[in-house]
Computed example of a mutant assay.
Amino acid sequence: MHITIIGASNGVGYQSVLQALKKGYRVTALSSRLDTLPDDENLIKITGSATNPDDVERAILNTDAVLITIGTKQKKNSTLFSDMAKAVVKAAERVNYISPVIFISGFGVGEGYRYASIFIKLVISLFLKDQYRDKKLMEDIFEQSYLQWVMLQPGILSDAPLTSNYKVYSSFEKRMKVGKISRMDVADFMLKEASAPRYLKKRVIVTY
C-alpha cells in the first residue's frame, strides 16, 4: 500500500509515518520541514506546502490514500486549514484522485460544540476560536467536494502510548465522553481507515 501523509513532520503525522513504515507501507511525506523523519527506503520525502496545489499534486499522485494531519501554533487569524483544503481539492481534481482522503479537524467544530465538555468549550473559546472557525471552513470545503473524504474529530491530543483500544462514533451522541486521546491511537485509526475504509463521507469521533 502507498499512502501520502500531508503534515508528516510532527504529531499525528509523524506517528503515522512511523506506524505505516512498520507495516511495510510505502509512504510519501509532504511537509515544510522533513529533518525529523527517518531515512527509509520506503519513505519518499517531499519538501513543500500543504497550501500549494502543485506540491500536493506531486505528493498524492498514484497513491492509495491521503492522510492530512496538519496543525499550526498560530492562534489568531490563521487560514491554514481552509487554504489547505482548497489546495487539496484543486490538486485532486487535476489528477482525478478517487482514493480516500482522511483529514483531522477537531472535536467541538461546528455542531460538535454542543456535545463538547465544559473544559473543551473553555479551551476553544479562550484559545482556539479563530482556528476552529477556519477548521469549519475546511470541513465545508471537503464536504462540498467530490472527494472520498473522512472527517476525523479527535479530542485533545496527548503523547500517551498506543493502545489501539478506542471507541469510534460516526454521529454525535449524548453519552459520548470525549477528552484526551493519544496521537499514536489517532494515527492507528487513520491507517486502519486508509487500508479498509468504513467511514467514507462521514464525520468520525475517536475517543476512549
Rank of each mutant, 00 (worst) to 15 (best):
M151D: 15
M190R: 04
G179F: 07
Q153P: 03
A187N: 06
V95H: 06
R183S: 02
M184D: 08
A20F: 10
Y132F: 15
A194L: 10
Y25G: 12
K73P: 14
S195K: 10
P154K: 01
I5P: 07
S158Q: 04
K90V: 14
E57R: 08
V101Y: 00
L147V: 01
I181D: 00
L43N: 04
Y166T: 01
D39H: 08
L122V: 08
V101N: 02
Y199F: 14
L18H: 11
I141F: 02
G24M: 13
L34R: 08
K180V: 06
T47G: 12
A87T: 02
L162P: 06
Y208K: 10
I104R: 01
A65I: 08
G24W: 12
D185G: 04
P197C: 05
R26Y: 12
G179E: 14
T36V: 08
P38Q: 10
M84K: 04
M190F: 09
T36Q: 13
S164D: 15
T47R: 12
G112I: 05
Q144M: 12
D55Q: 09
G13C: 09
Y14Q: 08
S158D: 09
A194I: 10
A160Q: 14
Y25S: 15
Q19K: 11
I181G: 01
A85N: 05
G108D: 04
S105C: 07
V95M: 09
R183W: 01
M1V: 14
D83C: 00
Y14C: 01
G11E: 02
L21C: 11
L18A: 11
K129V: 02
L43F: 13
Y169S: 15
I3E: 02
L126T: 11
S170R: 13
I181L: 09
I102V: 06
V17W: 06
E57L: 12
T79P: 05
D64P: 09
D188F: 07
E111P: 07
Y115Q: 06
I98C: 14
T79H: 14
S182W: 04
D40A: 12
F107E: 04
N52G: 05
Q15D: 14
I104W: 04
A187Q: 04
G48H: 08
P197K: 03
F119L: 13
N10I: 10
K129M: 06
W149T: 03
M190W: 10
S145N: 11
